[in-house]
Amino acid sequence: MTTTADLDRQEPTATQQIGWLVQDTVTMTWRDLIRTQRQPEMLSFAVVMGVFFLLLFYWVFGGAIAAGAGVDYIQYLVPGIFVITSLTGAQQTGTGLAADLSEGVTDRFRSLPMSQFAVIAGRTIADALRNVVGILLVAAVGYLLGFRFASVGGAIGAIALAVGVGYAFSWMNAAIAAQVRSAEMVGMLSMFWLFPLMLASTVFTPSEQMPGWLQAFAKWQPISVVGDAARDLSNGIPAGDAVAWSIIWIVALLVVFVPLAVAAYRRSR
């Protein structure tokens, strides 16, 4: 067999390094998916969270909120819940990574000839895949309540954007986790971004009744923007601008938080 000693002398080329980065990311995703399956309580919490929000808002607030929505409330609510599902899933990236960092296996990863970026990338991708499951479950329950996608293309677009924004927030939370290195701290800190983003948004209700300053925030913050785009796509309403703004938000968040998360992870030893 080829021992590692045969590889040690020459520096890898850039192409080789990118190849390894991809290979390591696939490997770490595989590992995190196995871990996800083996922690059924975490998995079911993440997956059922969306359905919980859907039923809660549909039954408890549905009647009151419906006025002003302009469409049947279930048509308004379900695409927004896709985004909420993805966002709460992103929160688990942070708690999971913080727990990982406290285990010795992270030290072993650091001693291996692997891309350290892959440690976080694998987890964010595994979490995004889990979010897809959660969103499909929300869509299925939504169907039972009368929700319908206008088109297959719209359905794919809406789900892709919801998963995308959750993925971006996964990186934000990974950056927080690598910085504070405690699952409890990550959980506590998430109150400060998760709830404002969730509640001061157009996901559950249009922003018209909010005070002016809040309206501006609620209209332009990423969860609303993506929620609006997902809603338009699901309902077959032309959504060009909303989709463009959604993509801008997702890319902007990734541009900021991917380097921050990787840098914080490298420092956290």
């Binding site: 390591d24 595989w30 285990e103 010795g104 990863f109 291996l112 000839p113």
Partner: peptide
């Protein structure tokens, strides 16, 4: 590297752990 500075993945089996590290060594 082994010992208190390193460890294995607690949620994986021995075989999966070896597979994981083997993959990461390419």
């Amino acid at each position: 590297l082994a010992g208190q500075s390193a460890a294995v993945d607690e949620k994986l089996t021995a075989r999966e752990n070896l597979e994981l590290f083997g993959r990461l060594y390419k």
